[in-house]
Design a protein around this nucleic acid. Structure first.
Lengths: 204, 204
DNA sequence: AGTCATTTCGACTATATAGTCAATACGAGA
DNA sequence: TCTCGTATTGACTATATAGTCGAAATGACT
């Protein structure tokens, strides 16, 4: 007897636990891509994840908590797409353009991700506010440099986000044209009254 | 006895019936402005409408049918805002601009309507397709006149709709600036690469 | 006041979904 | 093989929602 290493025991379970949690999270991701959280049932999740009902409640307190976890994961995916750009591009419009294109390319190549983002855009979540905050920072900087026709930053953000979201919706319903991303980006820049970033960056 | 006029009887009930149906429709409109149809329950509707459950099923077969009726009513409200413009404005860009502004003004002055439209934009309904069809017709005509930079009509439609929807969302969360509508319209026209309509709208 | 087609009501049964918990399975180390 | 902390299971109770239906109310007309 004697030695009962609690920490070790917890460690042991961790892998199995993490795997099951990931299963549930993936199932939730898939389901939340096609319906709003209000219409998501625990039964549907456990069936899709292939686990028992009790297991769901062992990992999450409620559907809302699962939805929050999915939202957090989604937020990370956005950060992943951005980190490279944020450091290397000093020009705010170039940064904005790069991010816009990155996100759009991702949406076109990963429809489930795209559907999830579109669904999430309905009820402003934490990650959505983060994205908007970054965008507004870039827009403010560009505006301070006198490079925008739209001086209202909130409106400018709505223009960028609005076009992006609707173009993504369009790409989910119709086949996306090959030059859709650059076409959409140009439209955004024209809408903002911003000239395209000077030199060609890695945008092309 | 003798005379039992069935047609007359039906006519009698009509007024009461119409009133109750309108109550349910209004309640459904209010509730669908704040949640998606998948999350709407019959109990919630009948409570909001102040009628018994059986009454709901006497008028509608299901929540989906109610949602469709609300959608149809919404479609009519769009048509009402358009009919004046459609006949009097021969210029497609002027027409588009007028409609955009009309819809935006309506959204700003009627938040419930705005919320309902935003909610409805998630799952493309019949009326949404109608709006888009009209828009595409105007855009096609303008493009045929060589007045657009965006030649892809689907993309052009997504730009207009996307900006509109997101600006409406913004106006629901923040206070709308006084010149929001014209600012947004100018952004749309720039995005499309269309010069603003000539001076007076009454002339081509 | 009486008649009767129409409308409304709400109690009732079905079913679906939420949330709990005692029992079981798992698996690394003794 | 056995122990024991952790993870998983699924049957079970609660509650919520769907959908039905006989009874009651309504009101124009006689």
């Amino acid at each position: 007897m004697a030695k009962i290493d609690a920490a070790r025991r917890a460690e042991i379970g961790q892998e199995k636990r993490a795997r099951t949690r990931a299963q549930i999270l993936d199932a939730g991701t898939m389901l939340l891509a096609e319906r709003p959280p209000e219409a998501l049932t625990v039964d549907a999740v456990v069936e899709a994840a292939g686990v028992a009902k009790g297991t769901f409640y062992y990992h999450f307190q409620s559907i809302e908590e699962l939805a929050a976890a999915v939202g957090a994961k989604l937020g990370e995916s956005f950060d992943d797409l951005l980190t490279a750009a944020r450091l290397e591009l000093p020009d705010p419009i170039a940064r904005l353009s790069f991010a816009f294109t990155q996100f759009l390319d991702k949406a076109i190549s990963d429809p489930i991700w795209a559907r999830l983002v579109v669904q999430s855009s309905q009820a402003p979540t934490e990650f959505a506010r983060g994205i908007r905050a970054h965008l507004k920072a870039d827009l403010t900087e560009a505006n301070d440099q006198g490079r925008l026709s739209v001086h209202d930053v909130e409106l400018a953000a709505d223009i960028v986000i609005g076009i992006w979201l609707q173009v993504v919706r369009g790409s989910l319903e119709r086949r996306a044209a090959s030059d859709l991303a650059s076409q959409a980006l140009n439209a955004v820049l024209r809408a903002l009254g911003a000239s395209p970033p000077m030199q060609n960056l890695a945008v092309a």
